[in-house]
Amino acid sequence: MKRYPTIKIENGKKYFFRFDLDQRIQHIILAATVIILVLTGMPLKFSETSWAPYLNTFFGGSKMSPMIHKVTGAIMLILFAYHVIRVVSQIVSKQIFPLKKEGKMNIGEVTTILIKQPMIPNLKDAKDIIGLMKYLLYFTTVRPDGDEFTWKEKFDYWAPFWGMFVIGLTGLVIWNKVLATQIIPGELINLCLIAHSDEALLAALFLFIWHWYNVHFSTSVFPMGTVFLTGYLSEELMVEEHYEHYVRVMTKEGLAHEILPPHGGHKPFCDKPLPDKPDSPSTTTAAEQPNDTLQQGGLSS
């Protein structure tokens, strides 16, 4: 497997490793299949609207469009299976197997390993959400520091994870309804249809509003975030969203002296002294936020 440097320096700017090629390809396939599935599925859900027949015809009408939907859905399910197998095998081979070799294998240890997986929600996420609410409601100017994966990213991971399970399973049942009803009662098909289409609407709105806002349309990243293509995140965004992780990585790479102060409104990083940061965060000036034009124009205290 190709090694990815944790920090890549290009034109004097630091870029931080986030996703390897395999993950990026998985994401692109997922994004493409979701968009095609939404475009071929929504004309059915909203078949009585004026735009539905046009979109449906664009995808080949009522013979072709369902075919595209099914093939795309199958690709997505294969991707889902691949992802789960890959994650599980990596945990087993890299964490549980060495444990077995050491002879420390017991339920407690394995549970600890599973709980400490980067995407598992933890207490820090709960604290960060409360901290963010305080910040958003103007009770404080201190934004919570993000870890390697923030609660937003965990949400963005688990929501489609659950969605793919529900939509995929019900989709398979609807697709193979004659076969399925050899076993399950026909009334369940009604429930599958409701679950499939309602969950799909939720997923579409979630991804196209919430996820796209966070990764593309927010003023910090507009017009487009590039981490899903390059796999590397710029230093400014790293400081803004993942400060705790940023400081840890910089220290580990021996760049502790180059650590930037936290993003505007951040509390000081308490655990470690920051050599380059004499000021308290409340005096963070606009000059330290070169990427955020809106904030420069904002009120200063």
């Binding site: 958003l136 103007y138 100017t141 509003i209 806002y213 003023t219 904002g298 009120l299 205290s301």
Partner: peptide, 20 residues
């Protein structure tokens, strides 16, 4: 989530303001 998104947009207008 929409509420957080909306508040986030509002917060970005006045990044350094606070009641406290």
């Amino acid at each position: 989530l929409m509420a957080i998104l909306f508040l986030d947009l509002l917060r970005r207008l006045f990044p350094n303001a606070s009641f406290r």
